[in-house]
């Protein structure tokens, strides 16, 4: 289906790949090629974001450095603690290192690739969404990859180094670590997208989202067994530190296929759920009843 998309002679008559680009919703391109073009798009954006960050090399290095320091301080605190107290609730220094390595790496990758998610609420409030709506790329995806937090590289760097050097993992643990970091990053991204998308319904979304993210980070970096009862329920639902941190940490130390399957299911479900929330909000925005809408 060579469709004319441009004036003769520009070469754009067949600029599109032979795949039917005009396929309407409901007809699907082969999943593999969709995934491939998505990956290419994300990769491109990460590269461009990195170029921008590196354009100010000193500031970039400083940001990365400060994130490493921040993470290191926390691990240092735990080191101090475990010098005095051998263990707490079954956690020793090694366990805490695993927690920090996992969280830091997951949040780091999030910062490097998907930090645009943290801007959704503010962009909706300022009407900056329109920019993405007139482009043919899915607005949510585009929004999410549009920003990078250079500090994320510091987090990820710290996480990986701490895991390798301080936790001295076995081969199995290392493999598990990689897989679990990916799942954790997915859940983090989905969570932030969902909470930030509340901006389509309330003007307070930016504050709520900030609190939610801090809450997530804070709860994720402490031993799971400190919390019981109702708090634990919250930590597996409203503030999913359970899925971002506790379950992955358990799995790194002791792999369990059933539990891993559950985590995978949660990750996938959270992606779809987040997209659904955003899409519902977008529909609201487009019919103009979103509170935060401005001209």
């Amino acid at each position: 289906m060579a469709r004319r998309t441009g004036p003769p002679g520009t070469g754009l008559e067949r600029a599109t790949t032979p795949k039917p680009r005009l396929a309407r919703r409901g007809s699907r391109e082969p999943l593999a090629s969709q995934a491939w073009s998505l990956l290419r798009f994300v990769a491109y954006y990460v590269g461009a974001n990195l170029d921008v960050a590196l354009a100010y090399r000193a500031a970039f290095a400083a940001k990365v450095f400060s994130f490493v320091v921040s993470d290191a301080m926390w691990v240092a605190f735990w080191w101090l603690y475990f010098e005095r107290f051998p263990s707490v609730e079954g956690y020793g220094f090694r366990q805490v290192v695993i927690v920090w390595a996992l969280c830091a790496t997951a949040f780091g990758i999030f910062g490097a690739i998907a930090a645009g998610a943290t801007t959704i609420a503010s962009r909706v409030a300022r009407g900056e969404l329109d920019f993405y709506l007139v482009l043919p790329k899915a607005p949510l995806l585009h929004l999410v990859v549009s920003r990078m937090d250079p500090g994320g590289f510091g987090d990820a760097l710290f996480g990986i180094v701490a895991f390798a050097a301080l936790a001295r993992p076995s081969f199995e643990e290392a493999v598990a670590f990689v897989v679990l970091v990916v799942l954790a990053t997915v859940i983090i991204t989905a969570y932030i997208v969902a909470v930030q998308s509340l901006a389509f319904w309330t003007g307070r979304a930016e504050t709520i989202a900030d609190q939610a993210l801090s809450g997530l980070i804070t709860f994720a970096t402490y031993p799971e067994r400190l919390f019981g009862g109702p708090v634990k329920v919250v930590l597996f639902t409203l503030v999913p530190a359970g899925f971002v941190s506790y379950v992955p940490v358990r799995l790194v130390q002791e792999w369990d296929w059933a539990l891993a399957g559950v985590l995978l299911a949660v990750a996938v479900a959270s992606l779809y759920g987040a997209e659904a929330v955003f899409t519902a909000g977008l529909r609201r925005y487009q019919s103009g009843s979103a509170l935060a809408m401005r001209g």
Partner: peptide, 27 residues
């Protein structure tokens, strides 16, 4: 993109609009 050369934006648009690299170069 404010901090990058326009060429980078063109490259991005190539991805956004699903255009072939050779066509974009000529364009």
């Amino acid at each position: 993109w404010y901090h990058l050369p326009p060429r980078s934006t063109f490259e991005l648009l190539r991805h956004v609009y699903d255009l072939d690299a050779s066509v974009v170069r000529r364009r």
